[in-house]
Design a protein around this nucleic acid. Structure first.
Lengths: 245, 245
DNA sequence: CCAAAAGTGTTTCATTTACACCCATGT
DNA sequence: ACATGGGTGTAAATGAAACACTTTTGG
């Protein structure tokens, strides 16, 4: 099995404000709702020079796969994700025109403040996850398919606590949590029912604190409650929870 | 990233009759219900010589990962699975004492008749999936963890049609399908409710044929109905269904 | 006729959905 | 005071579980 290279790539998502494109004319008022975004890096060499791609790089002989994902992510974007999970391994023989490359792809989440630390420039940018092609054109390699798969997995795996703590801060209002779910699922949710099901799931708990400063009744702040030792809620037996930052 | 080897391994499951170990004394009548079994191969070299392991081998430069899984599976057990799906990629630096080995692990299903073709011998055997340690001792490498993860994923992903067509034949009775689910989930299911939910799911459809020869009323035979082109029922956008044999 | 499994109907319970309504705060 | 979003109540609709019952075969 010589002549085969092992790489890692990361689909790293953050929830950032961004105007949604509407079917109406361009003059419509900007819809400043939260949307999922991901950072892309511009390739400077062939193949696919100048095209945008997922952050990633080669695996070194002594590091874990997840460590390689972390390292390459920090080298290219300075991001250190609070959540990291293996997504899938892509290994079709002609994925890369330069030779056989097998890529282990990870999905990661970062909070908005950390996301803002990324130095956006000529070769690094954020793009809305659901309209990549219109925003940055075709991605390099098979990265567009990879992003689609990551989004599909996120939608089918949303749990109240998991993405809360990693896309939002430690404390958050239920409205913020609902906005996260709305952005992920792409549809509005009933505030009353969302509140009940989220609280009833036991994965978030109320704190003493309340949000202040808004032009309406202050909202209570909640905290994510991780699944207790025994119950591996949705994760494999050998890994009772996703890797944390 | 030199000095790194890429392997594939396969957890391949079949539904075979096997006596369930009961808490009562050994003299209790054998419970000949169906249980999930998987084939293991005995290692003939170090490391872990004489220990049982998952079938697998090295990836060659020009084949797809799934093709490598198929090839190594056939070379070691002569099995050609009717269903093959990527499970996870294991790449901890010290998984193998001989050096860095990254293993892309696949899960596969075979029907009982094909499973019977395996030439069981000194170096190939079937073992019940849920009591591996008691039956064959510790597996080589981290293969025991891998099997646990495969079983966990199977339990959390059972859909009526998918596993039906691949663990049973093309035609099957609802009782047989229910036995499959009972074996996977490890608990009895209500026949009446199972029938309703299975049929209502739209993933199985009745045929004209009926089973005959049993000492009771003949059961109608059903067929699995694959998800139609549009709706990717439970599979990623770039792969609307699992790989078929 | 009897046993045994196929197949149907019905009742009950829990969960989801829809929506009306009250509460607390900044302007 | 009033607009705005936070938070609660409630009733209808949907779906899952439990179980009694009828049907059809082989012995």
């Amino acid at each position: 099995m010589a002549d085969l290279e092992l790489a890692v790539s990361t689909v790293i998502l953050a929830l950032l404000p961004g105007s949604c494109p509407t079917a109406a004319g361009a003059g419509s008022p900007a819809d400043e709702s939260l949307r999922l975004h991901l950072p892309l890096v511009r390739r400077t060499r062939e193949p696919f020079a100048q095209r945008w791609a997922l952050p990633g790089g080669w695996v070194t002989p002594d590091e874990r796969l997840s460590a390689a994902a972390r390292r390459t992510l920090e080298e290219t974007t300075a991001l250190r994700p609070s959540y990291l999970e293996q997504l899938y391994t892509f290994g079709a023989p002609r994925r890369s025109p330069t030779g056989r490359v097998v890529s282990v792809v990870y999905t990661a989440l970062v909070r908005a403040p950390e996301a803002a630390d990324v130095e956006v420039g000529e070769n690094v940018r954020w793009a809305p996850a659901d309209t990549l092609a219109e925003t940055v054109g075709d991605l390099a390699f098979d990265h567009a398919e990879i992003v689609d798969y990551a989004l599909w997995r996120l939608r089918t795996k949303v749990s109240y606590a998991a993405i809360a703590q990693h896309l939002l801060g430690e404390l958050f209002t239920l409205a913020e949590l609902r906005h996260v779910h709305e952005a992920v699922l792409g549809k509005p949710l009933d505030p009353a029912n969302f509140r009940r099901t989220a609280v009833a799931s036991g994965s978030v708990e109320a704190t003493e604190h309340v949000q202040t400063g808004a032009a309406h009744r202050p909202a209570r702040l909640y905290r994510a409650v991780l699944p207790p030792g025994g119950a591996t809620g949705g994760y494999p037996p050998w890994q009772s929870r996703p890797e944390l930052g």
